[in-house]
Simulated assay, not measured.
Amino acid sequence: MSPAIVLEVQTHYKEEELLESHEFHKGVQHLCERGITKVPRKYILPALDRPIFPKKDGATNFKLPIIDFAQLQGPDRIHALKSLSKACEEYGFFQLINHGIACQSILDMIEAGRKFFELSFEERSKYMSKDMRAPVRYGTSFNQNKDRVFCWRDFLKLDCHPLSDVLPYWPSSPTELRQAAVNYSKETKFLYIMVVRAILESLGLAETTKDIDENDGDHHIIKEFQDGSQLLVVNCYPSCPEPDLTLGIPPHSDYGFLTLLLQDEVKGLQIQHEGRWVTVEPIPNSFVINVGDHLEIFSNGRYRSVLHRVLVNPSKSRISIASLHSLPFGSMVRPSPKLIDDANPRRYKDTDFASFIEYIASHEHRSKNFLDSRRLT
């Protein structure tokens, strides 16, 4: 083959790759709408990173510790706090039941999220942005500007604080989305604050969070959480023709303080527990709550953020809604001084959201690499 023909073929392949890359940035939903029957190369993981599906599905099904929110508010609070502490130390995850959020609010939020991803690509793409601080952002993969292999996920991220400032930027279609997200964000924020109070108490940072003196430091901590950041992430995992070649989200930990995750009835969430990947059994009308990197730092390593990932399904699409919470964007996250002593020296550097955003903008987000960058050796 002559050099001119070789050059022409190479140029053709590069043009094809550029065209493909442009299509991938439009999202998985867009690919599926075009009727693909195979997973494109851009989504195929290296063999060692691919999920292994056991022959017997029940072999890896896993029940997380269950925390009854009603018990946390009643006379069994001390027992419930011990269970909460054990779950955060040993699993980094728990399922919260009897949380008090109305079923209708949950159903409305899931349905509104589902309808957003059923909009035309032209409508969805209005909210595409590379600005990670944008009040609304539609995108795909994990970090589509850095990921070498894309993951089988599209997302809609809604900044929720302060609501009055960000609400005008939220999508106006589908018509029910704004109101459903407003109601849901308010209810999950209240629930988060109540769980944070219990976590502070379980760490021994307050004798009783119900009777905090407004002049002491513990009240200041609660005030910071009340004024803290909240991000709603509606995840869409379309059905996948070859689910053993890719993942909805690769192994990672969450960067905030706590994440309240709402799943639909389709299984997909896996956590790493005792060296193996286990699939979390969805419990209807419950929240999966997990420790984030900021809580690991704040607790000086006593409560640990845990790696988790998402499988995709060959026949069913899946919707999940994550409400990510932490301190205000401008706050510094550091180990609580009350949890540092000679036996438990300080284990982490101070950090803030600016450091995190700068890090993930320039690195591929894998495992717990951001948190590892904050460790003191």
Score class of each variant (00 low, 15 high):
Gly139Tyr: 06
Met109Phe: 09
Tyr127Lys: 01
Ser125Glu: 15
Phe121Cys: 10
Asp131Pro: 02
Ser125Asn: 14
Asp147His: 10
Val136Ala: 02
Ser120Trp: 02
Asp131Ile: 05
Leu163Trp: 10
Lys126Ala: 08
Pro135Asn: 11
Glu111Asn: 14
Phe117Glu: 05
Ser129Asn: 09
Asp154Ile: 08
Leu167Asn: 04
Phe117Val: 00
Phe150Met: 13
Ile110His: 10
Leu156Ile: 13
Met128Ala: 14
Ile110Lys: 11
Tyr127Cys: 05
Val149Gln: 11
Phe155Tyr: 07
Asp147Lys: 07
Tyr138Val: 04
Cys151Pro: 11
Ser141Ile: 01
Arg148Glu: 14
Met109Cys: 14
Met132Thr: 01
Phe116His: 01
Tyr127Glu: 01
Asp147Val: 07
His161Ser: 12
Cys151Arg: 11
Asp154Trp: 02
Pro171His: 05
Leu158Phe: 08
Lys146Glu: 12
Asp165Ser: 15
Asp154Asn: 12
Cys151Gln: 15
Arg153Asp: 09
Leu119Gly: 11
Asp108Gln: 14
Ser125Asp: 15
Cys160Glu: 08
Glu123Gly: 06
Gly113His: 04
Leu158Arg: 04
Ser120Cys: 05
Glu123Met: 11
Cys103Phe: 00
Ile110Ser: 09
Ser141Trp: 06
Gly113Glu: 04
Trp152Ala: 05
Arg148His: 13
Leu167Gly: 06
Asp159Gly: 13
Phe155Ile: 04
Tyr138Ala: 05
Val136Ile: 09
Val136Thr: 09
Cys103Arg: 07
Asp108Lys: 15
Pro162Trp: 06
Leu158Cys: 10
Ser164Val: 13
Pro135Glu: 02
Tyr169Cys: 15
Asp159Cys: 13
Ser105Ile: 01
Phe121Glu: 12
Arg114Leu: 06
Asp154Ser: 09
Met109Ser: 12
Gly139Arg: 06
Trp152Ile: 09
Met109Asn: 06
Lys115Gly: 04
Phe117Met: 02
Cys103Asn: 08
Glu123Asp: 12
Cys151Tyr: 14
Asp108Glu: 14
Arg133Thr: 10
Ser172Pro: 00
Trp152Ser: 00
Gln104Met: 01
Ser172Phe: 02
Ser129His: 07
